[in-house]
Structures are given as structure tokens and as C-alpha cells.
Design a protein around this nucleic acid. Structure first.
Lengths: 340, 340
DNA sequence: CTGTTAGCGCATTCAG
DNA sequence: CTGAATGCGCTAACAG
């Protein structure tokens, strides 16, 4: 391994001078700087980050904790975060919590040990608060992504759950729907809770009934089997059976449509479907499923930017909150007027 | 920050003893071990990885270099790699090269600086050899994923390009096709080259013509606009126009189908399409596009396993090569017999 | 079984 | 503008 001393010896200067060249200190004569740089290149010297970190307490590593990178929403968040990180000279460490608090906790201990400079986190659920507090106690800046947790006083990049949900439900109401079901994630996740609340509020606002039988919460937010619940819904008596379903995530939306088709329910003629969050633009559902698409790339990009500003102390002291609007794509799955 | 000395002082032992407890050395009395462990827990002590790395030259960090994590193939590779890494006590650093040699090179310098223990890499193209050589020179073990590069003497997890391509082409031949086009990536990527070669070989083997007009290589392997080439193909005179297209990647396949539909070409009646690599199982194309699906998760999982074995020197000295077979899904896009 | 000494590679003092 | 000494937190090697 080539060290700063190898360079120093060969250049007939002290290690300190080499260090100054590496760190672009300005009080170096043009001549020695050139000489040192030449030898650095010649010997292919690359500074040892561990040694630097040991002194500086900085690693130039950001961490991204998501529930599952396989979810296209988080894939895109990761891509955005990585782009910003790279641009600012940081690297990105990837963690999948699988919506599991213990796994998340284990990861966070590893992150503290590694000495990550900051963490972008989409918490598993409300119980993540304890895990996040641990990061804060270790003075590691964090940015909450997508899922809000109270009383943490940290930067956030969130979706406008209230507005977006309301618009989706109102779209269904405009199409003539009066019995609207919700296929939702667990209520210990902020996004589910807020979408649930906005769903209820919007129905009430328009004088429509809120029926417990139309409300479903899955165990996990993503990749849940919803077909038994769908079966329940379609088996309700004619006057109680919903004519539309609001699915609160991309996977829930896709699984809802799949289940409906499995039971030979026509979408949208028998039951319309709208979905919170989009599906990737390389799918065909993109042409079918009505969706409020979240700017997932920007969740990561803006999140990383806020995080770096926090790390480098170029941001205001008080926590910042960015709320990103969704983009509405009204498509075939809800493009059908219900007869009165 | 809590250090080993804080623990030592409070426990009335030396720092070395604490170190031994942390590293689970066996020559520690049960009593002192218990005492030290209690204080570690009490003070929430987490060892500093930088300090450890400085001595051990190990970081417990694996790096994954892909062209783009947004590509579902690599998303799944990443998930597999991360699972294995976590299971073995490693963390995963994510890098997107965007099929760009300079970006890849810059990343590799960062990785060397960070001191990653090993790199899983899907090289941008053949010119990546120089970048990879740099890693090898720094004694960083690497595993080549998906894209082979000659004379590097390192472990590999590859797809069986020859067999898989042949089977796809033979499937088309069985369906009665005699004029088969190929929409391929650039030939400086091994997978493209091998699929190209197998495509030509298979056609010749069956006494079918190989026509230069049917052969297309895009600039980049993924996300390329193929519609102008598709236009050329469908504008060929009746006797020369292909009746089937072999697309060599997921995105090329999806874009091929989209382009064909745009030009009002029926798939598969007018032109059949088969695709190397699958599309995610949450898409509807999954139900449509004939595909040789690669076990992408296992590319990452097995790759990480080989890499860790190489790092921990539990693997044989000679480089290992794993060739993973694809899974064939014959679907609507090619389920159509051509009339003779 | 436990402690002491030394040093990993670098950057922060403080002197020149 | 440059250099020498010191220590970041931890562990290998040795000594007891």
C-alpha cells in the first residue's frame, strides 16, 4: 500500500506537505505542489479513508434505509439519492429493512459503527422511532423519506397524502361512485394512516357513507396478498358492494387489479381502481392503471441534498420539510361513468 | 463518543480486555466477560469501524457496481447481493456506472479509497478492463457479474448466453419463422457479443439466412430508442421483412414491442417477439412477452457469496465460474405459427 | 487469563 | 510556505 510517507520520501518533502497537497490547502508553493502531484500520480497513490475518518469523524458515506429496494418506488429513490451523493462526493450504502424493526435496528448499529455521515430513512413503521433516536443520539443527521414520525425534529421529504388521496377519491366520486373501498397498508405506518384519514374525510365531506366492511389494512405495506379481502368485497350484497377501490400503494394496486380479474370482475366496468403511487413506465399497467404518481426520484435526490446540507452545516438549524405533489394519470382502470 | 477506554475504565480492566470481549476471544474469564458486556450495553458502546479498518485493512463493506439500479435486472441483483452481504455481516455500497467508463473509473478510485473488501461488478463494457485491473492491483477481490471480460482471472457469475439464445431462436424457428431479426446492445459488451454470435450460429445451423439488415446494435445496452430501427425493419420488402425479432434485453424487448404497436404491427401475428431476460412480475408484459428469464436475484446472491469466500480466503485459489441457466416463459408474443 | 507497548495512515496543532 | 510531534480508536505482539 502506498502511503503519504512514500510520496513524501520520494518528493523530498514532509508527509504534512503531501497532506496539504491532497487536501488542496492554498499555502503551498506552486512548485512543490506540482512535484508532489506528479509523484502521487506516478505511484498511483489513493488516500486511505479509514485513517482520514478516524481523525475527521467523516466517512463521506450516506446510507439509505428502505423497506425493500425491489419496490420500484424505492429503486427510484435510491437512484435519485445516489446521483446526488455522487455529485457531492459521497457514496451510498444500501439497507433493506423489510419492514422489520429488528432488522432495521441491527442495521442501524452497523451504520453507527461504520460511521456513516448521514442516513436517509423510510422507517419500517412507527416503532422505528427508537431506532432513529439512536442515530440522533450519535449525532448522525437523518432525513425521513416518505414516512413521517412525530417528535423527531428532523428533515423530511414527504408525499402530500391528504391532497393526493382527496383528489383520487373525488375523481371516483365524479365518475359517479358512491361506494368506495380502500385497500391499505398497516396503520402503524404514517402514510397508511394519513391516506386512511383523508379517505374517510373526503367521503364524509361529500356526504358519502364510510363502511367498515370497505376498509382493509394489510399486515405489510407492500407485496401483501389482498385476494381474500377482494373476495369479501365482491361477495357483499349488491347494495353494499363497492363500485370502486382505492389502493394505497403500487403493489396493492397491481394486486388488487390482479385479484379482481381472477374473480372475473371487469375493471373498470364492474369495479374501478385507482392507485396511490405509480408503476414503472416500462410496464403495460402504465397504460391501464389510474395512478397518482409520486416523484420518487426526487424523494431521493432532494433527500440526499438536504442530508448533505445538514452534514456540511450549510442548512438552517430548524428542520425542513419538503412535500412533493403527485402527478395524476387518469387511465382506463377508472375511466368509466357509473350509471345512477 | 464512547470508546473502548471508557468501557475499560468503568470495568476496571484494560482496553485490551474489552477488545477481547468485543471480538469474542475465548481466553476471557466468564466473570470479566459478563462485567464488560454489561457496561458495553449500559453505555451503548459501538466499536469504531474506521479504527478497526485502519489496522485490519478490512471494512466489511462490499461494493456493487451496476450500470443502472433502475434496471429491474440489477435491482434484483442488488437485493440478492444485499441479502447475502447482511447475512455474512457485510454492508453493501451501491454504484451506478451508467455504462460510462469514466464514471466507473471515478467510482473505482473512491472504492479503493474507502477500502471496500470486494467488488461485485457488471462492467460497463470491454474497456472496463483497465478499471478492474486497478482494483486487482490494489488486491481487492472482484466478482464479474453478467458481463465477462477476458484475461482477468477472477470469479464470475454469468448467464448461459449461447444456450439461452439458441433455445429462443429455435423456438421461433419451430413456430415457422425463417426471417429473424436481432435488436441487440453494443458489441463491446460481452453479453451482446455472445448473444449476437449465438444468434448467427443458430440460424446457420438451421440453414437459415443471416441478413445484415436484420441486425441492430444500439449505442447503450439498456433504454435505447429502437423505433427507427424497427421502422427500417417493417419497411423492408415483403420477402425480406422479418417475421420475428429477438431482443437481447428486457428494455430492448419492451421497447421493441412498444415500437411495433406504435406502427400498428400486430404482435405476434405480423411479427413475433422474444426477449432475453424477464420483466418484473408486477408488470402485465409478464403475461405477454416471451422471455428467457434470468435468475437475477441469484446473480447477486451467489456473486456476493463467492466474493465473501474470496475475501475470507475460504475458496479455492483458482477462479470460479458460475453459469446460471435462464427460465423459459413462452407467452403470447411468440405463440403464433407462421403459415408456410 | 490479563495488561503494556507500539503503531495502523493521516491531519491537527504548533514551531520554525 | 514547510516540518515535527502528537493522537484519533483500536488491536497485534509480547510480557506477565
Amino acid at each position: 500500500m502506498v502511503t503519504i510517507y512514500d510520496i513524501a520520501k520520494k518528493a523530498n518533502v514532509s508527509a504534512m506537505t503531501v497532506s496539504r497537497v491532497i487536501n488542496k490547502a492554498d499555502n503551498i508553493s506552486e512548485q512543490t505542489r506540482k512535484k508532489v502531484e506528479a509523484i502521487i500520480k506516478e505511484l498511483n497513490y489513493i488516500p486511505n479513508s479509514s485513517a482520514r475518518s478516524l481523525i475527521s469523524k467523516k466517512t463521506k458515506i450516506l446510507s439509505l434505509m428502505v423497506t425493500d429496494i425491489s419496490n420500484p418506488f424505492f429503486t427510484s429513490v435510491a437512484r435519485g439519492a445516489e446521483d446526488k451523493a455522487m455529485q457531492m462526493g459521497y457514496q451510498l450504502l444500501l439497507c433493506n429493512s423489510d419492514e422489520n424493526i429488528e432488522k432495521e435496528s441491527k442495521y442501524i448499529d452497523m451504520l453507527i459503527s461504520t460511521g456513516t455521515d448521514g442516513v436517509l430513512i423510510a422507517p419500517a413503521n412507527d416503532s422505528s422511532k427508537k431506532n432513529i433516536r439512536k442515530l440522533i443520539k450519535h449525532n448522525i443527521p437523518i432525513v425521513l423519506i416518505d414516512r413521517y414520525i412525530r417528535d423527531l425534529g428532523c428533515d423530511q421529504v414527504l408525499s402530500d397524502n391528504e391532497t393526493t388521496t382527496r383528489k383520487l377519491i373525488e375523481h371516483l366520486i365524479e365518475q359517479g361512485h358512491r361506494r368506495i373501498a380502500i385497500i391499505n397498508g398497516p396503520l402503524d405506518v404514517a402514510t397508511s394512516r394519513e391516506r386512511h384519514q383523508a379517505y374517510c374525510d373526503t367521503l364524509r365531506l361529500h356526504g358519502l357513507p364510510v363502511n367498515d366492511k370497505w376498509i382493509h389494512q394489510s399486515e405489510l405495506f407492500h407485496h401483501s396478498d389482498v385476494s381474500s379481502k377482494i373476495k369479501e368485497l365482491i361477495d357483499l350484497p349488491a347494495g353494499e358492494r363497492p363500485t370502486a377501490i382505492f389502493a394505497t400503494s403500487n403493489f396493492l394496486g397491481l394486486n388488487t387489479v390482479k385479484s379482481l380479474l381472477k374473480y372475473n370482475i371487469r375493471v373498470p366496468e364492474d369495479i374501478a381502481v385507482v392507485c396511490y403511487d405509480g408503476v414503472p413506465n416500462y410496464t403495460e399497467s402504465e397504460l391501464f392503471l389510474t395512478a397518482a404518481e409520486q416523484p420518487s426520484y426526487h424523494f431521493g435526490y432532494m433527500g440526499a441534498q438536504m442530508l448533505i446540507e445538514r452534514i456540511e452545516k450549510t442548512s438552517p438549524a430548524e428542520p425542513r420539510k419538503i412535500v412533493l405533489p403527485a402527478e395524476f394519470h387518469i387511465r382506463a382502470s377508472s375511466r368509466y361513468k357509473v350509471e345512477k
